[in-house]
Design a protein around this nucleic acid. Structure first.
Lengths: 200, 200, 200, 200
DNA sequence: GATGAATGAGATTTCATTCAT
DNA sequence: CATGAATGAAATCTCATTCAT
C-alpha cells in the first residue's frame, strides 16, 4: 500500500540523520564527506545508514530539493503584488535572508559539487529550478529597466548571476574559528552595498 | 648538485601537462578529477605522470601557487603610489581582470576544494597568501573610510570578503554551452554595479 | 513440551509466507531474493519474518524438502506393480506431471542455486534424495535393457540424467509475458517427443 | 586516439583473467563468485582486477557475448545449403558439440543467473541473440513439418525450447568428482535418443 | 506478532601511487 | 620517458540477522 521507496517515509530519526549529514556537508562538501563520518556522527555503523536511506545521494537529494523548494516558494511569493521592481528585488533578497540560514548545507553542496550533481539525471531538477530562479530575477530586473527604476544598460542575466551569487555564497563561507558573520549581517551589508554603493 | 625534487625541473612537456590538468580541474574540481583523466587527456598512462610529478597534489600546488603569486604581485603593484583609496580599489579590481582569466583552474580549485587544501600543511601558504590579500583590501577600505571617500559604517572585513568573492568567483562559473561572459565583461558589469549601484 | 524449533509450529500465516517466498524464489532464484523482498510481499518488515522462521535458509529448507518428499513418494508408488519397464517409466513421468507444477520454486532453486545448497551440511538430504531418485530411474532403465524393451547400448545413468533434466527443468523456465506452456503441455510434448526414441 | 573503454583492449593477461573467472563462474555461478575469489585465483588483489576490467559484469559480458557470437555463427553456417530439415537440425546439433565445450562458463551463467542478466539493459543482447537462435531452430522445424519429414503436430516453439535445453544444459552440469561425461558423449547420447522421436 | 533501529560481515569499486621492464 | 601490471587503503553499499519496545 505504501510506496516502497525509503525516501518517502519520514521519521524523526531520519530527519535527525539528514540534519547531521547536512552539518558535515556544509563543513566539508558532499563528496568529501564519507558515509562513515555521517554514521560516526550519529553513533552508528555506516551500514546502518542504509536502513534509512537508499544511498548517500538520496541524503543529498533530500537536502537539495528541500532548499530549492523553499527558495522557489519564497521567490514566487516575494514578487507577488509588488508595486515596483525595486520592491520586488528587495523582497526577493529579504526572502533569502530567512531561507538561507536554514540551508547552509545545500549552499555548500551547490558551490562545491555542482559539476557532480548537475551531471546526474537524478538531479535534473537542479537545472530546472535554477532556470526558474533565473527567470524570476531577470523578469524583475527587466521590469525595472523598462520602468526606468534601473539603469537601461544593465545586462539582466549577468546582473542576476552576480547578485544571486553574492547573495547566496557567503552563507557557504567556511565557519572560521574566529569572528564570523551571521547570515543577517551579511545580507544587510550586502544590501547597503548594492543599493547605495560603496561611496558615500 | 641540482635538487632532486621533480618540481624543480621545468620543461615544456611538464608545463603542457599542468595546463591539461588545470583545464580538467577548472571543469570538475581538483578532487573530482582523477589522475587517469589527466593522463588520458595527455595521451599517456596514469603511471607515466609520475615521471613528471611527485603526486597529484604537486600539480595542484603548482597551479595554486602560480595564481597566488600573480595575484599578490598585481595587488602590491596596484596600491603603490595611489592618491585616493578609490583609485587603489579600482586598480586592484583592474589588476584582477588581467590575472583571473589566466587562472580559471585555481579559482575553481579554491572554490570547490578549499577545505581539502587548507587542511594540509603543504598548502599552508594558501592561508598566508589570503591573509595578505585581506590586509591589502582592508587597508584601502579603511583608508577610504578615514578620508571620507567611503561610508563610515562599512564593515571593512565583510566588505572585503564580499567584494573579493564577487570579483573572483564568476571566473569559476561553469562554462555553459550557451552564452557565457568573458572575464572582462564580468568585471566591467561588476564595477558599474558596485560603484554606481543598480538604480539609475 | 513441544519442540522449541520454530519449524515445528505450522500455521496458516506461516504457510502463506512460505508460498510468497516460493513465488519470489521461482522468479529470481533463492540467493537473489532478499528477505526484505519476501517481507515486502507479505506487507511486513524483514525483521518480523524471524518470528516465523529461524532463517532464510529454513524457508528454503521447507520448500525443498516438501518437493523431494513429494517426488520420492510419487516415484516409489509409480514403479510398484508395473509389468514392463516402459510402463514404469511412463508412470514416473506421469507422476511428475502432477507434482512439478506445485513445486516451481523448488525446481528453480535446484537449478539456480544447487552449488550453494549442496555445499551445506543442512541440505545433505538433497544429495541423498537425488541419489535415490537416480536409483529408481536407473533400475527401470536397466530392467528395460535386460528385457529387450530398450536399446542395449543405453548408458543408463546418462539417459536418466538427460531425461530427468528435460522433465524437470522446463517447469523452471522463466514465465515470459507472452505465450507460455502449462506443465501439462510441456510433459505431453516431451513424452510424444521422447518415447519412441527410447524404444527400439 | 584509442577508445578509452577498457573492454576494447585485449591482452594476454586480460584473456587469462577472463579464463580464470570463467572457470569459477562455471563452478559456482556468476553472482556466487566474488571478485576476491577471481583475484585470488590470479594471485593478485581484488582491486587490481579493475586495472583490466570496468566491473565484474564486464567480465561476464565478455564471456556471454563470446558464447553467443560463437553459437550464432555456428548456427547460421549450419543451416546454409542444407537439402533437408533433418540435415539442418543435425548440423545445428553438431555445430553445438564443437561450441559448447569451449563455453561451459557461459552456459552455467545463463542457467544460474538468467534473471539477473536479462533484467539489465547492458545485457539486452542476450534476449536479442536468443530470439535469433529461436528463429533459426523454429524455421527448420517448420520446414521439416511442411516437407513431411517431421510430424505435423509438433509445437515448433516448444520443441525448440526442449531441444535447446537438453542440448545446452548438460554442459552446465556440475563436474562431480566421480564419473562425468564429456560434451561429446552427452551429445552423442542425446542424438541417438532424440532423432527418431522427431521424425515420423 | 510486529516495528524500528541497528549490527557486522563482506561485497564491489575507486584511485593515487609504485615499479620492473 | 613510457608501459603495463599491481598495490593497498578506503569508499559505497548489501543483507541476513538481532533485539528492545
Amino acid at each position: 500500500m505504501t510506496t516502497s521507496k525509503k525516501a518517502a517515509l519520514p521519521s524523526e530519526r531520519r530527519a535527525h540523520l539528514v540534519q547531521l549529514a547536512g552539518d558535515l556537508f556544509a563543513e566539508k562538501g558532499f563528496r568529501a564527506t564519507t558515509v562513515r563520518e555521517i554514521a560516526d556522527a550519529a553513533g552508528i555503523l555506516s551500514g546502518s545508514l542504509y536502513h534509512h536511506f537508499d544511498s548517500k545521494e538520496s541524503i543529498g537529494d533530500e537536502i537539495l530539493s528541500a532548499f530549492l523548494d523553499d527558495v522557489l516558494a519564497g521567490y514566487r511569493e516575494a514578487v507577488q503584488d509588488t508595486d515596483t521592481a525595486r520592491t520586488a528585488i528587495e523582497q526577493i533578497v529579504h526572502s533569502s535572508t530567512a531561507t538561507l540560514s536554514r540551508h547552509r548545507a545545500a549552499l555548500t553542496m551547490l558551490q562545491n559539487d555542482w559539476p557532480y550533481f548537475s551531471a546526474q539525471p537524478r538531479f535534473a531538477y537542479l537545472r530546472k529550478a535554477t532556470k526558474e530562479i533565473e527567470q524570476i530575477w531577470v523578469a524583475q530586473l527587466e521590469r525595472g529597466k523598462q520602468s526606468g527604476e534601473f539603469r537601461a544598460d544593465l545586462d539582466a542575466k549577468l546582473v542576476y548571476r552576480l547578485l544571486r551569487d553574492i547573495l547566496w555564497m557567503p552563507t557557504a563561507w567556511p565557519r572560521s574559528r574566529g569572528a564570523s558573520w551571521s547570515t543577517d549581517q551579511i545580507v544587510k551589508g550586502l544590501l547597503s552595498l548594492l543599493f547605495d554603493g560603496i561611496t558615500r
